[in-house]
Design a protein around this nucleic acid. Structure first.
Length: 322
DNA sequence: AACGCCATCAACCGCCTACCA
DNA sequence: GTGGTAGGCGGTTGATGGCGT
């Protein structure tokens, strides 16, 4: 048994809206609103359109005060920061940008912002990898611990401080994704990053310092390193996919590990452990308790970020948050 | 001029959730 | 508590136009 269609697919018009259709819908909406029923609306006004299509047309195009195109630098910053923090929750991101629709932002991200963010990154990779290798060699020659940067790590550019590796294996195992390198790297970066999750409602976008304050002593059985400064986390009873945010991180951080020390800027929440204290991953989550978002993400150390040579795009994109 | 490729964006599709009877 | 329905959302598709060859 398939799902019951929301309208008679045979008798509805598809494709671009004509000015006449727009006029009809706009006129009716301005006078009556939806009347609480989008499905019935097209019949009322004599449109051969699916109710969902009417809703979409109204929300994305006809609604008053809708802005199209011409995204400002500030809007870019907000979108990037929120995307890095919460992933492709376009409706939530759109809620932070008056006059923008989720569809618009989604398209803008997919066609422009993502490339803007990632484009130059690839050019930087080779150079960054060289720097990383050099640093790694220096470190290895210092402590004589060449093993820490090799076996058991997906990415040889990302050294694994041995002390912390064991502590977080449990957490990593719960996340059924293939971003072990990114998480391990962030987790273990001088002990300053920490992924963890709990079976609690909501997701937090608190700043790193707030996260630190809130969570330092409350992560259940997971032992936290005293020096942990950044908590990349989220709480979801039903789970939340983490792959997207970490995909981006994988992309952006690949070969740039030496530049991460200043990343106070976009944390941010990833829900990385699913329900039952992180025993499975699910694509859906309950956002009832998400709002209001704490926004913008606090930048606690912009000077530090600049001094530590973040990728230019990130400095540029995130700097205006201050 | 014709063609192919690519970027853009409006619109659609299908899944999930909230709500109501 | 359960099932049906509408609304909301994110991913994807397809039409269109611009550009290079």
């Amino acid at each position: 048994m398939g799902r019951a269609p929301c309208c008679d697919k045979e008798n509805v018009k598809k494709g671009p809206w004509s000015p006449e259709e727009d006029a009809k819908l706009k006129s009716y909406m301005e006078q009556h609103g939806t009347g609480g029923n989008w499905i019935a609306l097209p019949q009322k006004i004599g449109l051969k359109r699916c109710g969902k299509s009417c809703r979409l047309r109204w929300l994305n195009y006809l609604r008053p005060n809708i802005k199209h195109g011409g995204f400002s630098e500030e809007e870019d910053n907000i979108i990037c920061s929120l995307y890095l923090a919460i992933g492709s929750r376009w409706s939530i991101i759109a809620a932070q940008l008056p006059g923008r629709t989720d569809n618009d932002i989604k398209n803008y991200w997919n066609t422009k912002l993502k490339k803007k963010l990632l484009g130059k990154q690839h050019k930087n990779q080779q150079q960054a990898r060289r720097v990383c290798r050099r640093n790694q060699r220096t470190k290895e020659s210092k402590d004589g611990n060449a093993m820490s940067a090799k076996k058991g790590n997906d990415n040889s550019y990302w050294p694994m401080p041995p002390i912390l590796t064991g502590q977080f294996n449990q957490v990593d195992r719960h996340a059924s994704d293939d971003h072990g390198s990114t998480k391990n790297f962030l987790t273990n970066l001088d002990g300053e990053f920490c992924f963890h999750g709990r079976a609690e409602q909501g997701i937090s976008l608190a700043s790193p310092l707030e996260q630190q304050h809130l969570n330092r002593n409350s992560v259940g059985s997971i032992a936290l390193p005293e020096q942990a400064k950044y908590f990349i986390d989220g709480y979801s009873p039903s789970g939340y996919r983490l792959s997207q945010g970490l995909d981006e991180l994988d992309e952006m951080f690949c070969g740039n590990s030496v530049k991460l020390q200043g990343l106070d800027c976009f944390f941010g929440a990833w829900n990385m452990v699913a329900e039952n204290n992180g025993t499975s991953t699910s694509r859906s989550m309950n956002w009832n308790n998400v709002s209001p978002l704490i926004y913008p993400p606090a930048v606690t150390s912009y000077q530090g970020m600049q001094q530590q040579c973040l990728p230019d795009e990130l400095v540029h994109l995130l700097g205006a948050q201050i």
